[in-house]
Computed example of a mutant assay.
Amino acid sequence: MSLENVVTHFAKWEKEKDIMGFATSSATVLEAAETLQVEPARIAKTLSFRKGEEGVLIVTAGDAKIDNKKFKTIFEEKPRMLSAEEVYAKTGHMVGGVCPFGLTTEMNVYLDESLKRFVTVFPACGSSNSAIELTCEELYEYGNGKAWVDVCKGWQDI
């Protein structure tokens, strides 16, 4: 059902045919990168966090990690990830296919600055064996982005 929701979502822009399905898993950053033959950093992973009683989605580059201090500064609370059951209840997607598209409930979606260094990135499409190639602008638009944020570490050149 989840992939179908994403297909319906992308049909609004006539982009549903751009969704790629794979015979192999793309559930993790490394699996997706191997399947797509791209560097892991270009995989746009969607992380699900609590924000009060609500959840928020943060889409980051595959090599980025949440920085607790930056997260707390922006969202005014410590980062606490949703359980797999809560993720499914709020997004309609199982862990491994979570994305900001075709959500079953409204959620605020934030995109991390770590993505902006790429011309295109590859977010999942609601299943553990799907993805789509999008520019950052398209990801923001199609994913109903609320804002760009800087909540990650580990990806900048030192």
Rank of each mutant, 00 (worst) to 15 (best):
1 M>W: 05
2 S>R: 03
4 E>Q: 10
7 V>Q: 12
8 T>G: 01
11 A>Y: 12
11 A>V: 13
13 W>H: 04
13 W>C: 00
16 E>Q: 15
17 K>I: 10
17 K>E: 14
17 K>N: 15
18 D>E: 15
19 I>A: 06
21 G>M: 15
22 F>W: 11
23 A>Y: 07
23 A>N: 13
23 A>R: 12
24 T>P: 12
26 S>L: 13
27 A>W: 14
31 E>T: 15
35 T>E: 10
35 T>G: 02
38 V>D: 10
39 E>K: 11
43 I>F: 02
43 I>T: 04
45 K>I: 07
47 L>D: 00
48 S>R: 00
49 F>I: 08
49 F>P: 02
49 F>E: 03
53 E>Q: 09
55 G>N: 05
55 G>D: 03
55 G>M: 11
58 I>L: 01
59 V>T: 02
60 T>R: 07
64 A>H: 01
65 K>N: 08
66 I>D: 05
67 D>G: 07
68 N>S: 13
69 K>C: 06
69 K>A: 10
74 I>V: 15
76 E>F: 14
77 E>A: 15
77 E>P: 15
78 K>W: 12
78 K>H: 11
79 P>E: 04
82 L>K: 05
84 A>C: 13
85 E>H: 12
87 V>M: 14
87 V>Q: 11
88 Y>P: 00
89 A>N: 13
90 K>T: 09
90 K>Y: 06
92 G>F: 05
93 H>D: 10
93 H>I: 05
96 G>Y: 02
96 G>S: 03
98 V>C: 10
98 V>I: 14
98 V>G: 05
99 C>M: 03
100 P>W: 01
103 L>Y: 04
104 T>E: 12
105 T>F: 03
106 E>L: 07
106 E>W: 09
107 M>N: 05
107 M>T: 00
107 M>L: 14
108 N>W: 02
109 V>I: 14
110 Y>L: 00
112 D>Y: 10
113 E>A: 06
115 L>N: 03
117 R>T: 14
117 R>H: 08
117 R>A: 11
117 R>P: 02
118 F>N: 07
119 V>M: 11
120 T>K: 12
123 P>E: 04
125 C>W: 08
125 C>N: 10
126 G>H: 09
127 S>D: 15
127 S>E: 13
129 N>T: 14
131 A>M: 12
134 L>Q: 08
134 L>V: 12
134 L>N: 07
135 T>W: 05
137 E>G: 01
140 Y>K: 04
145 G>Y: 00
146 K>H: 04
148 W>D: 01
148 W>T: 00
149 V>C: 02
150 D>F: 00
150 D>M: 05
150 D>W: 02
151 V>P: 01
152 C>G: 04
152 C>H: 00
155 W>Y: 08
155 W>S: 06
156 Q>G: 05
